Simulated assay, not measured.
Amino acid sequence: MTAGTERGRVLIVAGSDSGGGAGIQADIKTVTCLGGYAATAVTALTAQDTCGVHGVQGVDPAFIQQQMRVVLNDIGADCIKTGMLHSAPVIEAVCEVLAEVPDIPVVVDPVMVAQSGHSLLEQDAVRTLVRDLVIKAEILTPNRPEAEKLGGMEINTADDLGHAARTLLTLGTRSALVKGGHLRGDTLVDVLADPDGTIEFADTRIETDQTHGTGCTLASGIATGLAQGLELRSAVMRARDYLRRALASAPGFGQCQGPVNHGWPVQGLDTEG
């Protein structure tokens, strides 16, 4: 099935980033630039810039549910993407709504720690995430530290990434993409495990510190592809290509880890793949 045969509606359930590089801001930009339609249910507000998270204000779980339900009842969704769900009550509330729409695929980005090192998931919520949310995921998209925490293992090599991805399938997710950006080396490797087996995506590393919001961006890119009718592997490949081009043309905003260039497709940039 090719992109465009579905309406491409993505409901994003995640936190806000006041700096605009990550969170729902990155999600909305990604979905829009890939031709989808983004709706949101905000789970938390953050006072955030390229140097870190300076404050977090959670949203009442009942109001998160209300945001989700009014969107689903009126606009509908072809895919749901979850990001920052900072506490066990929030995860439980979101999962309650997801149980009402079991036919809509869910992309779970298990946001635990910001790139600045600030914790975005309470310690007691990890068990709830694994027990209630992972089992609803069409695809789980952890980075190396998140996969280590979810799978209870150390990841030091590309082979470890594959082992971790396969291990995460035992938690109940239909597929898992373990990202290797935190590993050292000139080659960046991500590994996808799904019902068809394991596939490794390898590219030359783009040397940049402008990486704020890369996890949100990749997960939302995958969600957009699934919402538009792409098969999983095709959705992952397109999302990775979109992110690589956004990294290659990052604008250099901010004093620390700046955002990627989400808008490159509408700016006519000829960036390297």
Rank of each mutant, 00 (worst) to 15 (best):
V111Y: 04
V111R: 09
M112Q: 09
M112R: 11
V113F: 04
A114M: 08
Q115I: 10
Q115Y: 01
Q115N: 14
S116T: 01
G117P: 05
G117Y: 08
G117N: 05
G117E: 03
S119N: 13
S119T: 15
L120F: 07
L121I: 13
E122R: 09
D124Y: 09
A125W: 00
A125D: 02
V126R: 12
R127C: 11
R127W: 12
L129G: 05
L129W: 01
V130I: 14
V130S: 11
R131S: 07
L133A: 15
L133Q: 06
L133D: 02
I135A: 12
K136S: 08
K136H: 11
A137Y: 04
A137L: 12
A137G: 02
E138N: 03
I139W: 03
I139K: 01
I139A: 01
I139M: 01
P142A: 11
P142C: 10
P142N: 10
N143Q: 13
N143E: 11
R144A: 09
P145N: 13
P145S: 04
E146L: 07
E146M: 05
E146N: 11
E148D: 06
E148I: 03
K149Y: 07
L150Y: 07
L150H: 12
L150E: 08
L150A: 06
L150C: 06
G151N: 11
G152M: 10
G152L: 06
